[in-house]
Each structure stands twice: as structure tokens, then as C-alpha cells.
């Protein structure tokens, strides 16, 4: 049994290294920035940290039902989802994460696509 990428990347420290890079990327990405442009930046950063922890296969409180409810009213499209995936990949590449681990993180994030994208 293999350990999670979360552990292989270095646990919470890895998420901390990634969260600001990722949050800055999505905030600057005009396709999706409006979804991340929250007056309460600390709370929004916390959400990104939870998302990354989840994508790394780490301990998290993301549950399918909450995830659906939380994203339903945003009416997200496949293009929005793909933009987030791109930024996730770019973040991990920037951190020098090997391609196979990036692939694993992407696969975890993809597994909830059905809960995020509307219809």
C-alpha cells in the first residue's frame, strides 16, 4: 500500500508552500477570479488550503454532499473546472513536484468534478 501524495510531498508544510501560489494564480485568472475574489481573504485562503489538502489525498473535511451544496449556486461550467485544474497543475509544476505526483493530485481533484460542475 502506497502512502498518500500528501505524505510524500511533506504534509501540511507542502500545502502551506502551495496555497499562496495557488490562491494567487486563481485570483489572477480572469476566467475564474470572480469566484475567489472574497472580501474575507483569510477565509478564502483557508478554503484553498482545504482544497489542496484534499487534492493531495491528505486529511480533510471535504464531504461529497457539502461539496455539491457549496458549489451548486455558483453554476460552474466545465471550463471553470478545467481552469482550476490548470492552476493546480501549474502550482505543483512551479514547486518542482514530479509529473507522476501531479497526475495523482489531478486524479483526486477530477474525482469530484461531478459534484462541482452544474448539471
Amino acid at each position: 500500500m502506497s502512502t498518500s501524495i500528501y505524505e510524500r510531498l511533506g504534509g501540511e508544510a507542502a500545502v502551506d508552500a502551495a496555497v499562496d501560489i495557488f490562491y494567487r494564480k486563481v485570483l489572477a485568472d480572469e476566467r475564474i477570479s470572480s469566484f475567489f475574489d472574497d472580501v474575507d481573504m483569510d477565509r478564502q485562503r483557508g478554503k484553498q488550503k482545504a482544497f489542496l489538502t484534499f487534492a493531495f489525498g491528505g486529511p480533510n473535511a471535504y464531504a461529497g454532499k457539502d461539496m455539491r451544496a457549496a458549489h451548486a449556486r455558483m453554476h460552474l461550467t466545465e471550463q471553470h473546472f478545467d481552469a482550476v485544474m490548470e492552476n493546480l497543475g501549474a502550482t505543483l509544476t512551479e514547486l518542482g513536484v514530479p509529473a507522476d505526483l501531479i497526475g495523482e493530485a489531478a486524479a483526486i481533484a477530477l474525482s469530484v468534478k461531478g459534484d462541482i460542475v452544474s448539471r
Partner: peptide, 15 residues
Amino acid sequence: VQLLRKRAYLAGASL
């Protein structure tokens, strides 16, 4: 204030 905070963050400042 909100605009400056966001731009400062994007310019690399820690929250």
C-alpha cells in the same frame, strides 16, 4: 483598502 490588499497579496505579500 480591499483593492490594495488584494493587489498587495498578488504582488507577493503574505496576508
